Simulated scan of single mutants.
Amino acid sequence: MALSRLLRPLQRAEYICEPCHSFSTSSIAFSGHNKWSTIKHDKARNDKAKSKERAMVGKEIASATQMWGPDPKYNPRLTLALSNAKRASIPKTIIEAAILRGQGLSVSGQALENVTIEAMLPGSVAAVVECQTDQKARVLQDVRYMIKDNGGIVTPTTYLFEKKGRVAMEKKDGTNPDDYLDQAIEAGAADITTDDKGRLVVFTDPSETKSVGETFAKLSGLIIEELEIFWDPNRDTMVEVQDEEQVKALEDLLSSLREEPSVQDIYLNSTEKF
């Protein structure tokens, strides 16, 4: 009887202790899992943002070099672009490659060749991927594989776009497109408007982009800030991506494509900017 009385409290103590121990352990594990997931998601989001920024700054450097040469002493646009690259902590190798690309050269000194790849990406978004490379076969293989491996399909899509030339002038307060309509017509531009930065922009036939831009600059007294040939999506064929999984798949694929050194521009017919 005495032995039974001694054992009974011990059994109750063990019964109370076990769930306490289990609760404490599971709580710590769950908290750690949440923290790790948050870190991974934040890192992925930051990596995508950095990839997009590197692509934009690299394009800015290449464009400035193409228009006014590779020497910053005689190229104020390149000086500004290099300053932006430094502020964004863009690696030196990317900057040097962009300057060479503006001269039509690869890092090995070989002449670059333009390559256009058409594809349908997740969310039924049509894409035109413009590349520059001295190894056409490799780029075609790598980029096509990247698209297919991330849920896309390599298929004709340029019929959903129109190729245009675009010249953006340096911003000037109080600029009104109507005030420069005559100069734009005389220069041979197809249209004139302002962009979201308040800059005057003229559109033209792709083959006449540089000549129209230079003529308009002389007639208007404005300075050319950007000059490019791009694929403009047809407004009646643009799509909106609403499914979250498709948005994520599209963002992941675009991030991978922008990490490919040969990829220069990616044009989409989506209503959202990615």
Rank of each mutant, 00 (worst) to 15 (best):
R5F: 14
L7S: 13
Q11C: 05
I16A: 07
C17D: 06
H21G: 01
S22E: 12
S22L: 06
S24N: 08
S26R: 12
S26A: 13
S27T: 11
F30G: 06
G32M: 03
N34I: 07
I39V: 09
K40W: 05
K43W: 09
R45D: 14
K48Q: 13
K50T: 08
G58E: 10
G58H: 09
S63K: 11
S63F: 04
A64E: 08
A64K: 06
T65M: 06
W68F: 12
K73V: 09
Y74Q: 14
N75F: 08
R77N: 15
S83M: 14
N84R: 15
A85P: 09
K86Y: 14
S89K: 15
A97E: 15
A97F: 11
L100M: 09
G102K: 04
Q103K: 07
G104W: 01
S106D: 02
S108L: 06
Q110W: 02
N114G: 03
N114V: 11
V115Q: 04
P122D: 12
V128Q: 01
V129T: 10
T133A: 03
Q135R: 13
A137T: 13
R138A: 14
Q141T: 15
Q141I: 08
V143H: 10
K148P: 06
D149M: 12
G151V: 09
I153K: 12
T155G: 05
P156Q: 07
Y159A: 09
E162F: 01
K163Y: 02
K163I: 03
K164W: 04
R166Q: 15
V167I: 14
E170A: 15
D173M: 03
P177W: 00
D179P: 00
L181C: 02
D182C: 03
Q183P: 02
A184F: 02
E186K: 13
G188Q: 00
A190D: 15
A190S: 12
I192A: 00
T193S: 04
V201N: 00
F203C: 01
D205C: 02
D205W: 04
E208F: 02
S211I: 05
S211A: 03
V212S: 00
V212R: 00
G213L: 01
E214Q: 08
T215V: 04
L222N: 00
I223V: 11
I224K: 01
E225S: 11
E226A: 14
W231C: 00
T237K: 07
M238G: 00
A249V: 07
L250E: 06
L254W: 04
L257F: 08
E259Q: 14
E260R: 08
P261Q: 05
S262P: 05
S262G: 03
V263Q: 05
Y267D: 05
E272I: 03
F274Y: 15
